[in-house]
Amino acid sequence: MPRTETPAEAPAGPGPAPQGRRRRQRKVVVPLVLTAAITGVAVLGVTRPWERPASGTGKPPVEYGTVAVQRGSLSSGIQIAGTLGYDEPTPVVAAGRGTVTALPSVGTVIEPGGTLYEADGRSVVLMRGSRPLWRDLGPGAGDGPDVEQLKRNLVDLGHADGLGLAVDEKFTKGTETAVKRWQKSLGVKQTGTVALGSVVMLPQASVRVQQLGVQLGAPLGTGSVMTVSGTGLVALVRPADNQVSRFKPDGKVEVRLSDGGTVTGRVRSLIRGGSGGQGEGDGGGGAGGEQPKTTVTIALDSQRQARMTGPSSVTVTVVGDSVSGALIVPVTALLALDGGGYGVKVVDGTGTRLVQVRLGLIADAQAQISGGVEPGTQVVVPK
């Protein structure tokens, strides 16, 4: 068994062992993680310092104290501040020319087939699609995926009922008839041709007006008319480079809302070094010309709970490993031993002794240990 040291011969905390014990010890540097919950007795303050003489070096002595071994829980999850915002903000760019004669209010939700805004008194209609329209579509238009996209909308909006319209890339006579029906529903001239600028294709099923980019009377073609988003809320975080690996595809997270409630979610996307997918209230690039950090978008499992708070600040917890009922000490109490393993310096009466321990989970500068110690045992740590 390791012999007991008196205060006179006790080393100044972790350092070379006395004669007869030639194991050299050195402090171990342990990576820190962000969250840990310790239950039970509160951490004790320093109770008995040992000081190494300055030995004429002129350096101040190193002071040591003790802390009690705790029994509690430990988690390696991380917490990161983020924002709650509406999904997929998208600028709406006008393809035609004219003057803006009507605009929706911020917060308005528009479904496919509805009017996004007016230009020269004519409705500019929202349709669903991933390709912007770049030409007039009417009789004689060449085949293309833009024709297929238009036909799919005409079918979904009910303007092709009874026509047997095939959703393909050909602009047929049936397509012309469906376009005329659509124009009649808008109260405009039934030409059978969809003029460039009369339709805006966006990928969302429905959109929410997030911000207006022009004023009434402004000419089109000077920038985006507005920014729209999806109608669902998502959580957005920008982790530091050393935290990115904690976000796994479809990985489970917990989002604490500004009202104190929590909602679960899963990692939907991770864009390295970009600001894509940012929601309302997220500022974009870094300050001072810095490159933007990685952006993680988190889909929420409950929209109802999120909508009660609306766009706001949130705290995202990435679930990690956890233990309960563990014996816990500060990582500064650990000593790396020659030959492998770790030990702690235990106060024994008026002296100290070295106890080898097994190392478990490490989080937030705390370490789980086992072997040779009990809750309440005093171990030596630097002040």
Rank of each mutant, 00 (worst) to 15 (best):
D241E: 13
F247I: 05
V255M: 03
R256V: 05
S258A: 13
G260I: 09
G261S: 10
V263E: 04
L270T: 11
I271P: 03
G277I: 13
Q278W: 09
G279P: 09
D282W: 15
G284L: 15
G284S: 13
G285H: 10
G289L: 12
E290F: 09
E290C: 07
P292G: 03
T295W: 02
V296E: 02
T297K: 13
I298Q: 03
D301Q: 14
S302Q: 15
S302L: 13
Q305M: 14
G310S: 05
T315Y: 06
V316I: 06
V316P: 01
V319Q: 14
V319H: 11
G320H: 05
D321R: 14
S322H: 15
V323M: 09
V323N: 05
A326S: 10
A326I: 04
A326R: 06
L327R: 01
I328G: 01
V329C: 00
P330D: 05
V331G: 03
V331N: 04
L334F: 01
A336P: 00
L337E: 02
Y342C: 03
V344I: 07
K345L: 11
V346Y: 00
V346W: 00
V346E: 00
D348I: 01
G349R: 05
G349N: 09
G351C: 08
T352V: 11
T352E: 04
R353N: 03
V355Y: 01
V357E: 00
R358Y: 04
